[in-house]
């Protein structure tokens, strides 16, 4: 599995309120919610994003509310992957559970620039910045979590075990 696309760069502590503001949480419909993805921090994101594009951010990405709507809208916008220095724990869990690829890599998150063309290989954790020619290696997931992702999310993996 891999993704390739252009980079949208964000700062530290991107919270779930800016990823998907609560004023839109009166529906569970992912397509409807996704129209407002990142609206309060980057109002053109939805217009500019193409399938496979990559979000790159600083520390504590996805902090705040437990709303699964946050990783869900990022995934529904066809974002290929989120790379950050670290993730808030509920966002991290939710991303795995719904199958949004995320990678922790401090060096990549620091050096990759907005607009760069980036390729990510999820099996090896190798991130290649095609624009600058640099490569980075992200921490791989522990096998337990790899298994959830491989089976297509938490509920599918549970159903298979049952």
């Amino acid at each position: 599995m891999n993704t390739q696309g252009k980079v949208f760069k964000y700062p530290d502590n991107v919270d779930t309120d800016v990823i998907i503001p609560a004023r839109y949480l009166n529906t569970p419909n992912a397509e409807e919610l996704a129209l407002h993805c990142m609206e309060d921090i980057d109002k053109d994101f939805v217009k500019k994003v193409s399938a496979g594009d990559v979000m790159v951010a600083g520390w504590n990405f996805g902090c705040g509310s437990s709303r699964e709507h946050a990783p869900l809208v990022i995934k529904t916008c066809k974002t290929g992957c989120v790379i950050a220095k670290s993730f808030a724990r509920i966002f991290y869990r939710n991303a795995i559970n719904i199958g949004l690829p995320i990678l922790e890599c401090e060096e990549a998150a620091e050096e990759i620039n907005a607009g760069d063309e980036v390729k990510v290989d999820f099996d090896t954790g190798v991130i290649t910045d095609i624009t600058t020619g640099k490569t980075y290696k992200a921490q791989p997931f522990p096998p337990f979590i790899q298994n959830i992702i491989k089976k297509g999310g938490l509920l599918k993996s549970l159903k298979e075990e049952a």
Binding site: S66, R67, E68, P71, I90, R93, N94, N97, I98, G153, L154, L155, L158
Partner: peptide
């Protein structure tokens, strides 16, 4: 601890 909706669904089932 706080979790997301998929964890809630899994918790309700299992």
């Amino acid at each position: 601890t706080g979790v997301g909706s998929t964890d809630m669904a899994a918790g309700m089932a299992t």
